[in-house]
């Protein structure tokens, strides 16, 4: 199998004599390690599986067909939802992207589904004409068009693969709860590493700039200031970034406001306030006052931006809503960041 390591396949012979690769439904150690690694953003672009048809258990021409994406994390979830069941898995080519995102882009879509049904000759492998498509694939699929173009009827399965056994045992009926997407603590927490890494490079660049510029002073450059003021600035910036990247997702329901940028700004204001209190003995000189004011502007700008970017990972934000909040938030973040940086720089020279 071209998809390489991890999924060990042997084949199964269908009722009409075709060979179809068979995979175990139980995840092995390599699968679990792979799933863990993508959560840390390691090699997620290569975490794919060859599109096509796979057998799970001992399927016959009557066994159900499950449709999945060729992102291995999605595929593995489906596998573990099917432990103890026999069936066929039709893997669409979604360019290695999960079902929901791919459905939004249309790669997990009617056209790809219909052409994949034909290319694997699904009609010859199974005798029935039913497909179980994950509900989150629905943004890309038109059930009635699939029926028209392929003869296969789409049944929308539950949102989460772990509900599949109950769905199958209940005669392919999903309960209200199986149809709903929520965003509980555990789901938010696993997204933190990938979120932090996504802007990490930019933040480290900004930190390096602060470190170098901290040495500036009236009439020269001081290496001692780099060590004292520069390191302090880097610590403040990185702390703010980490706080927003971790506390934003973790405390999402409890942070005030509905807009993510507002939720993020509150984290920044809290950090700024703590910083202001901590450095109060220093407020006597103008350079210290400028410094505090500068951070009061820069920190919320950073934290607001970071949490605003978590909209993409969340499960309930609309494009119209994101656009509306960005129309106000992005200019505000830019003004605060630029003004704050200006004050911070000016503080070197007074």
């Amino acid at each position: 199998m071209k998809s390489g390591d991890g999924v060990r396949a042997i084949s199964i012979t269908t009722h009409n004599g075709r060979q179809v690769p068979r995979i175990a439904s139980e995840l092995n150690r390599a699968d679990r390690l792979g799933d863990f690694k993508v959560r840390l953003a390691l090699g997620r672009m290569r975490y794919t599986i060859e599109p096509g048809i796979y057998a799970i258990g001992e399927p016959t021409a009557e066994s159900p067909v499950f449709v999945s994406a060729n992102y291995r994390l999605s595929f593995n979830r489906l596998r573990s939802g099917l432990v103890g069941h026999d069936g066929w898995i039709l893997v669409l080519d979604t360019k290695g992207i999960n079902v929901w995102c791919a459905a939004g882009k249309g790669t997990f879509g009617t056209e790809e589904l219909v052409s994949r049904i034909k290319s694997v000759a699904l009609g010859e492998i199974v005798a029935h004409r039913k497909l179980i498509v994950p509900q989150l694939g629905a943004p890309g699929i038109s059930a009635h068009k699939v029926k028209e173009q392929s003869g296969f009827q789409v049944v929308y399965g539950p949102v989460r693969a772990k509900d599949l056994p109950a769905f199958l045992d209940g005669g392919m009926k999903a309960t209200e709860q199986m149809r709903r997407v929520d965003f509980p603590f555990a789901d938010r927490i696993v997204l933190i590493p990938v979120e932090l890494i996504s802007w990490g490079k930019h933040i480290l660049c900004a930190a390096a700039c602060l470190l170098v510029l901290a040495g500036l002073r009236r009439g020269g450059y001081s290496g001692r200031l780099v060590v004292s003021e520069g390191v302090r600035s880097v610590v403040i910036l990185l702390t703010s970034y980490l706080a927003a990247g971790i506390l934003g997702p973790a405390l999402l329901p409890w942070l005030p406001g509905r807009a993510f940028s507002a939720k993020g700004a509150w984290i920044g204001l809290a950090i700024s306030a703590a910083l202001g209190l901590q450095s109060r003995p220093l407020w006597k000189s103008w350079s210290d006052r400028l410094d505090i004011l500068a951070w009061f502007l820069m920190i919320p700008a950073v934290t607001s931006f970071v949490v605003m970017n978590f909209t993409g990972a969340s499960t309930y934000t609309s494009l119209s809503g994101v656009r509306r909040e960005m129309r106000i938030a992005v200019p505000a973040q830019l003004i605060c960041a630029v003004a704050g940086f200006g004050l911070w720089l000016a503080g070197r020279f007074v």
């Binding site: 943004p139 890309g140 009635h144 605003m308 993409g312 934000t317 119209s320 994101v322």
Partner: peptide, 20 residues
Amino acid sequence: NNCPADAISVGAGVGCAQAV
């Protein structure tokens, strides 16, 4: 996408600041 009667319209998209 799944309304066979064409009774629903929505400016569909991904609610993602990065995408914007």
